Amino acid sequence: MSGNGNAAATAEENSPKMRVIRVGTRKSQLARIQTDSVVATLKASYPGLQFEIIAMSTTGDKILDTALSKIGEKSLFTKELEHALEKNEVDLVVHSLKDLPTVLPPGFTIGAICKRENPHDAVVFHPKFVGKTLETLPEKSVVGTSSLRRAAQLQRKFPHLEFRSIRGNLNTRLRKLDEQQEFSAIILATAGLQRMGWHNRVGQILHPEECMYAVGQGALGVEVRAKDQDILDLVGVLHDPETLLRCIAERAFLRHLEGGCSVPVAVHTAMKDGQLYLTGGVWSLDGSDSIQETMQATIHVPAQHEDGPEDDPQLVGITARNIPRGPQLAAQNLGISLANLLLSKGAKNILDVARQLNDAH
């Protein structure tokens, strides 16, 4: 009898209710805020589980004197976190989706994509230029951005401005803007500013005609071990179906173009009346040469937790077992079709030249 009692006690200790789920994140304040929001949602869904947040620095956090596009290494903000995932030191990792490459290392998958916040870019102005827009900034004003995508589009749109690289986390960039006289304004992701509670610093939100956004911008991705079915089931509740389908289309477009950090590629997606609209573009580094096109596809946005595919093969690095396969494939095909259209119009040449120029500098 006593033996059975011990077995029952052991089973209770090993039951999922007692389990601590370890969540990996970057150390920056924004990353911690984003991770806290994901953990809060998981806690609400699984009140019996405990969650421990483990923060670590990544290569991208450490190399702050070089433009991201020049470092010449993929997975700048993800490699150390993936290493911890691989060694079973954490069970899942919360990322900004735009930091996750469209091809993940073997053994990993994006197990959830959370509801997207505003994906557009924002302009934050130096205190002396508050009330201005990019259009009304004085001639030769210097605007800071760490992104080739932003610089290429904005140089084309605002030729009277000069664009220079600015690195560091959000706090560091804002301090550089406010305390030094080098920059009249800087460009940042609206979602990051909003998550930090800095709505009052948003001086201008850039519309798609001015600057399309990065693939996955404004959404959070939760990376897990691809074979860890328990954790895949656990994080599945975080999937937002519309965000998922938009981001599958965007990531398929980028992957098929073979774009990345070192080339200016941008997108804009919208879901309306059962249609998914995808606009994508590529630019030369100075913005003088560009190709942009829009395509659409009829896609039914499923309700969360309709029964999805059981075999769960990944699409552009994403596993969404609780979302039907048909809409996911339709979104992926839309991204591939748009990429093929741009490639047929000469996108590869623009991107190759951009890559060579970026590598040469």
Rank of each mutant, 00 (worst) to 15 (best):
I318K: 15
G24H: 01
E223D: 07
V130H: 13
P138M: 12
R255S: 11
L97D: 01
G203A: 13
W283S: 13
A40L: 09
M56G: 06
L245S: 01
Q217W: 01
K79P: 08
I350A: 05
R246C: 05
D311T: 06
A249E: 03
G259E: 11
T25K: 05
G335Y: 01
A151Y: 09
I110Q: 01
R26P: 01
A297R: 01
L92A: 10
E306Q: 13
A44Y: 13
S262G: 15
R164H: 14
A297K: 01
N171F: 04
R201W: 09
A214R: 01
Q194P: 10
D230T: 01
D312N: 15
V267P: 01
A226L: 08
K62D: 15
L206C: 10
A67N: 05
I53K: 11
P313C: 06
E73D: 15
L193G: 13
A330N: 13
Q356P: 15
H268S: 04
F108Y: 13
Y213D: 01
Q153R: 03
R173A: 01
F125M: 11
S184C: 15
T66G: 12
Q314Y: 01
F125E: 07
E258M: 03
D359H: 13
S284Q: 15
R19T: 10
F129I: 08
Q50E: 15
P119D: 04
G72R: 08
P106V: 14
Q181W: 10
G281R: 08
I291N: 09
N169W: 05
V282S: 05
A249M: 01
G259T: 13
H300D: 15
L238W: 04
T58C: 12
P127K: 10
M295T: 06
L232N: 13
G144N: 01
P241S: 14
L81K: 01
T319Q: 01
I350M: 09
F163P: 11
I54W: 04
I299R: 08
D352E: 04
K272T: 11
F158C: 12
Y46D: 10
H268Y: 14
V38P: 01
T58I: 05
I350K: 01
D61C: 01
V215K: 01
P159E: 08
I187Y: 01
T298N: 07
I323N: 09
D311K: 01
K79L: 08
F77C: 04
K62S: 11
L134C: 08
D289I: 15
F125K: 01
S284I: 15
A67H: 04
F158Y: 14
W283A: 04
I33S: 11
A31H: 01
A270P: 01
A214M: 14
F158D: 09
V224P: 05
G221C: 10
V90T: 07
R225A: 03
G111Y: 01
F125C: 01
Q204G: 07
S284V: 01
D307I: 01
L254M: 09
G281Y: 01
E162M: 11
I21F: 09
P119Y: 09
T59N: 06
Y46G: 06
F51T: 13
A44P: 06
F129A: 07
L338D: 01
Q296N: 12
I54S: 07
R201D: 12
K87E: 10
F108H: 01
D307W: 15
N118D: 15
L188W: 01
C211G: 07
W283P: 09
L42E: 03
R164L: 10
V215G: 14
L49G: 12
P138S: 11
P101A: 12
I186W: 01
S262L: 01
E82R: 08
G144W: 04
E89S: 13
L342H: 15
D240K: 11
L338W: 01
F163H: 11
V222N: 01
V90N: 04
D61R: 01
V130G: 07
I350W: 15
S262C: 03
K348H: 15
K87N: 12
G197I: 01
G168L: 04
L315D: 04
Q296H: 14
R195S: 01
S96C: 07
V215C: 15
F129C: 07
K227T: 07
I231N: 07
D178E: 12
P309C: 04
G60A: 04
A55I: 08
S288F: 10
L100A: 04
S57C: 10
D228Q: 15
V316R: 12
L92M: 12
F158L: 11
T243E: 05
G131F: 10
I318L: 05
G197S: 12
Q181Y: 14
L97I: 08
R164Q: 09
K227D: 15
R201T: 06
Q292L: 13
L351I: 08
M56L: 14
E139Y: 12
L81D: 04
R251H: 01
V263R: 05
L92G: 06
P47I: 04
A219G: 08
A297E: 05
E310R: 13
D311V: 11
K157C: 11
V353L: 06
Q332Y: 13
L343I: 01
L244G: 01
H199V: 14
S262F: 01
T133I: 09
A266E: 04
R167Q: 09
A270Q: 13
D121L: 03
I166A: 08
V38I: 14
S69W: 09
M196G: 09
H83E: 13
K87V: 07
P101S: 10
H239T: 14
L351S: 07
P106W: 11
Q50I: 08
Q34G: 07
T145W: 06
L193T: 05
N358I: 15
S284W: 05
T25R: 08
R164S: 11
E117W: 11
F158H: 14
T41W: 08
V124W: 05
R225L: 09
I21G: 01
A303V: 05
R150Y: 01
T58R: 01
G346L: 09
K348Q: 09
P127W: 14
V267T: 15
E179R: 09
V130Q: 11
A40T: 12
A122V: 13
V93R: 11
G317I: 09
I291R: 15
G308R: 07
L343T: 09
V23I: 04
E223A: 03
L68C: 09
L148P: 15
G280Q: 01
P309A: 14
R150E: 01
T58Q: 04
D91Y: 05
H239W: 01
D230H: 01
P264K: 01
V215M: 10
G274V: 12
L188R: 01
Q181P: 06
Q356L: 09
P264Q: 09
Q181A: 07
A214P: 08
L276K: 01
G192L: 01
G107V: 09
I54C: 03
G168A: 01
L285D: 14
L97C: 07
D289A: 13
P101V: 08
I187F: 09
N171I: 11
A151P: 04
P313Q: 04
T243K: 06
H207T: 13
G197E: 05
L92S: 04
G317D: 05
I231C: 03
T109M: 08
H268A: 14
L104Q: 08
G216T: 01
H120S: 12
Y46V: 14
P264T: 15
S69D: 09
I299G: 01
T294G: 14
V143M: 10
I231L: 04
D230A: 05
L104K: 01
L188A: 11
E139A: 13
A189H: 01
E89M: 08
L154Q: 09
Q292C: 12
V93H: 13
L30I: 01
L351W: 05
A360N: 01
K227L: 14
S141M: 13
T78L: 10
K70Q: 07
A31W: 01
S45C: 15
V103W: 15
T298V: 13
Q292P: 07
R173N: 03
G107H: 08
S75G: 12
T294S: 13
K87P: 01
S344Y: 08
G280Y: 01
R22S: 12
K227M: 06
T41F: 08
V39R: 08
T269F: 01
R201M: 01
S147V: 01
A347D: 01
E209T: 03
Q181M: 10
V265F: 01
E73G: 06
I231Q: 01
Q328V: 05
R321W: 01
G60T: 07
D91M: 03
T109D: 01
G326V: 10
L64P: 12
L170S: 07
Q180K: 13
N358G: 04
C247E: 04
A152T: 13
D240L: 01
F108S: 05
